[in-house]
Computed example of a mutant assay.
Amino acid sequence: MTASKPELRIDGSEFSTLEGFYDQVGLRIIPGAEWGRNLEAFNDILRGGFGTPDEGFVFCWDDHEISKQNLGYDETARQLRKRLERCHPSNIGSVENDLAEALRHEGPTVFDWLIEIIRCHCPGGDEAEDGIELTLR
């Protein structure tokens, strides 16, 4: 019998922004670890080496429906405006297009970005060897 993987949890009722999600990751997934607090660094956490279990873990996202709403198009537009302030000039057009799409309530949201990153490390994903399982509750 195979031992079940440890469950690491975040609670969608405890944050309403991407920065709040990062706070939850720091508190619940990698307590005490220093990390970059951005999407690329979150992806790196799921690869391991930040104090997460070597065999992978179950990423439990409680109250994910609240997150889906809070990390929807308004938050996506806010994040894309922030990205515009610091992105390389060659990327401005692309970010502006993404922002226009978000303002029309089209395309992926911040919630979708995070789910896509997590699923990349799950069975069937490009980095499935990391052994992450996603549970949305």
Results as ranks from 00 to 15, higher is better:
Phe15Trp: 12
Ile115His: 06
Phe57Lys: 07
Ala102Ile: 01
Ile118Asp: 06
Leu27Gln: 14
Asp44Thr: 12
Asn43Gln: 14
Trp35Pro: 10
Ala100His: 01
Asn70Tyr: 10
Asn38His: 10
Leu71Glu: 02
Gln79Asp: 02
Gly72Met: 08
Arg137Thr: 15
Asp11Ile: 04
Arg78Leu: 09
Gln24Val: 03
Cys120Tyr: 09
Ser13His: 07
Ser94Lys: 14
Leu71Cys: 03
Asn91Arg: 11
Leu46Met: 07
Ile117Phe: 04
Asp98Tyr: 06
Ser13Tyr: 05
Ile10Ala: 06
Arg47Trp: 14
Phe59Trp: 09
Asp112Met: 08
Glu14Val: 10
Leu99Lys: 00
Arg9Trp: 15
Gly12Pro: 03
Arg83Ala: 09
Phe111Ala: 03
Phe111His: 09
Arg119Gln: 15
His105Glu: 15
Arg104Lys: 14
Asn70Ile: 05
Gly48Thr: 08
Leu114His: 05
Leu46Gly: 07
Val58Cys: 10
Leu80Glu: 03
Lys82Cys: 04
Leu80Met: 01
Asp98Thr: 00
Ala77Leu: 05
Asn38Lys: 09
Asn91Thr: 03
Tyr22Val: 02
Glu40Thr: 13
Glu133Ser: 15
Ala100Gln: 09
Glu65Lys: 11
Glu101Arg: 13
Asn91Gln: 15
Glu14Ile: 04
Glu7Thr: 14
Trp113His: 08
Ser90Met: 08
Ile10His: 08
Val110Tyr: 04
Arg104Tyr: 02
Asn91Cys: 07
Ala102Leu: 01
Gly131Gln: 12
Ala3Asp: 12
Asp44Gly: 10
Cys60Ala: 11
Thr2Glu: 13
Phe15Asp: 12
Asp11Gln: 07
Ala77Trp: 00
Gly36Asp: 03
Cys122Pro: 13
Thr109Arg: 02
Glu106His: 09
Ile132Met: 10
Asp126Pro: 00
Asp126Glu: 14
Ala41Asn: 06
Glu101Phe: 01
Asn38Ser: 10
Thr52Ser: 10
Gly56Ala: 11
Ile117Ala: 04
Leu18Glu: 08
Glu101Ala: 12
Ile45Gln: 09
Gly72Tyr: 01
Ser67Tyr: 03
His64Gly: 03
Ala3His: 05
Ala3Ile: 11
Ala128Pro: 12
Val110Phe: 01
Arg104Val: 03
Ile29Asp: 01
Arg81Val: 09
Thr2His: 12
Thr17Ala: 00
Asp112Phe: 05
Gly93Ile: 04
Arg37Trp: 06
Leu103Lys: 12
Val25Lys: 01
Arg47Cys: 15
Leu39Tyr: 06
Ser90Trp: 04
Ala33Glu: 15
Asn38Gln: 08
Arg28Ile: 01
Asn43Leu: 02
Pro89Val: 04
Pro123Lys: 13
Thr76His: 12
Gly26Gln: 08
Gln79Gly: 01
Glu133Arg: 11
